[in-house]
Amino acid sequence: MDSPPIVISASPHVHSDRTSKRIMYDVVIAMVPAFLVSLYVFGINAFIATATAVVSCLLFEYLIQKYLLKAEITIADGSALITGILLAFNLPAGLPIWMIIVGSLVAIGIAKLSFGGLGYNIFNPALVGRVFLLVSFPVQMTLWPTAVENNTTLADAVTGATTLGIIKDGLQFGGTMTELSAQLPSHLNLFLGITGGSLGEMSALALLLGGLYLIARKVITWHIPVAVLGTLALMTGIFWWADSEQYANPLIHVLSGGAILGAFYMATDLVTSPVTKKGMLIFAIGIGVITVIIRLFGSYPEGISFAILIMNAFVPLINKYFKPRRFGSKIKAKIV
């Protein structure tokens, strides 16, 4: 009998064609609209910042894996690319290039590879990079070039402020929301992206577009973004309802301070979020609550980065206590 070259491996013998790589590149595609908006608003600066972050993330991953860890090089899996883009999205346009490089090194070297690389990291690498920069270079990290000024003078950072920054400072110095409203961008501008802030958080519309793409491609589910934004809106809504002069309305909170960027692109990072839907909801509500506490009572106006990192730390615990219900563990059905 002629025996063909046969493989003997255990079932299943077929496999779905979804791969981690495809998932990663879907995330990249989802970020394209927001990137285009940032190019439109900040011009060449946005390009320089994003390119710097992406190239340094890839390069650091390559160098560390090749020379320090002597491990398999994984730069093609798409995850370092995502980290680079997300890091850039979280930075103000016009941040000195060397700072971006430092941020990338922290993100890839410390937050990702020192934990064991993709799949083993506990914290979202891009956020660790961002928070590191924020703590180390608080001045530069809060110099927000504004849209209009930037179109004329490219590289000069202007001390614009973010929407939430204006509110926070204004309220601290005894202002009321009515008095401050003149300085704030309209809700429509917040939605479309004509406002001060980091590269990627400009346009809620562009971010939502990408977010819907991620949901449609089944890369993420609705649970995390809806629960984060829902909690944020609900809690800030209660404060606003109680005293609309001292607290900004929930729409402002949802549309600014990187809430949408965080909820759709960073809190949903597969590796650093829980595996069950139940767990995701707990995780996301936690992010919402912490964000509100930081925004209303803490010293940072935005807060969602910290909130996500704090909840990242709880993920192993959440995975442990919010397990799927085992089939047959509690019998509801009655025998007729």
Binding site: R18, S20, I23, L118, G119, L270, V271, S273, P274, V275, T276, K277, P324, R325, R326, F327, G328, S329
Partner: peptide
Amino acid sequence: IRCGECVSVCPMGL
């Protein structure tokens, strides 16, 4: 990558 896909398809809740 802890995507949770395996968890959501497991018919036995494992």
